[in-house]
């Protein structure tokens, strides 16, 4: 179809369409990050994405595959490590987050042949979205949406009261792994838009904004998606017109919406 082709030929539209796809899944997943206090956990996974990129170049696999695999391995390692209660979770996360980022950067510096746009990876790049990336984003988004919708009750129940959920037959541990897997996919596909360092913001800020307006969990996820859309379209437009970096512009827009909602809506919290 020529119209679609014309649109997809334009890098701005590609970035926007991709960004909206990311926001679609970042909404519900961001709610779980907020509810389960996993912000730092998400950060750690995101930081490890850079290591994933370096490894992808080393073993010559597509970047998205390398990033997802690295995130999954790290996430599973984290879940296992956290059972050994020798270190507080935030200490452990702090160690792994920054080590993964540093190892990624050092590894990349050993590969002079590989030309990577580091700023783009860290802060997102409006120009970097290819048609192939769009396929990845919408493939990932479809998978995540199907998982979130079919597993919603179990995910929510194990968030509210893990032990009660277990007694009622919810496979709490398995759902935790599924959730972590979904985070890994989101990070891999969102990296292009907002960059490694700011992915957690795209997950948390729209969800936190939605909390103020929502009466139940499903509403919160839906409203978070809307604020994600606003952040992505506002931020990318900002980036396009003012030539600001894409990721920070998206986060700034999300933050403005957050401040606006929290300063205007004076309703009681449900």
């Amino acid at each position: 179809m020529p119209i679609i082709d014309t649109i997809l030929d334009d890098f701005f539209w590609r970035a926007l369409i991709g960004g909206l796809g990311v926001a679609l899944v970042a909404g519900p997943l961001g709610c779980f990050v907020v509810w389960r206090r996993m912000a730092y956990f998400g950060d750690t996974l995101a930081h490890s994405a850079l290591l994933g990129i370096a490894l992808s170049f080393l073993i010559r696999v597509p970047l998205n595959v390398g990033v997802v695999l690295t995130c999954v391995v790290l996430a599973v390692a984290l879940v296992l490590f956290s059972r050994v209660k020798a270190l507080a979770t935030d200490t452990l996360l702090g160690i792994l987050a920054h080590s993964a980022l540093a190892i990624g950067l050092v590894t990349l510096s050993f590969m002079p042949d590989v030309r990577v746009d580091l700023t783009g990876l860290l802060f997102g790049d409006l120009l970097a979205m290819s048609r192939n990336d769009l396929l990845w984003i919408y493939g990932g988004a479809l998978l995540i949406m199907v998982l979130v919708i079919t597993l919603w009750r179990g995910l929510l129940m194990s968030t509210i009261h893990p032990e009660l959920a277990r007694v009622e037959g919810v496979p709490v541990e398995r759902l935790r792994l599924v959730l972590v897997l979904m985070f890994s996919i989101v990070i891999a596909v969102a990296m292009k838009i907002v960059g490694v360092l700011l992915i957690t913001a795209l997950l948390i800020i729209p969800a936190a904004t939605a909390r103020r307006l929502a009466q139940n969990p499903e509403q919160m996820a839906g409203i978070a998606i809307i604020f994600g859309f606003i952040a992505v379209s506002g931020g990318l437009s900002l980036s396009w017109y003012l030539d600001t970096p894409a990721g920070p512009s998206v986060v700034v827009t999300a933050f403005l919406a957050f401040v606006l909602v929290y300063s205007s809506a004076r309703k009681s919290r449900a």
Partner: peptide
Amino acid sequence: VLESTLPLN
């Protein structure tokens, strides 16, 4: 104990 960020009736 319900996380205050989780709206639930």
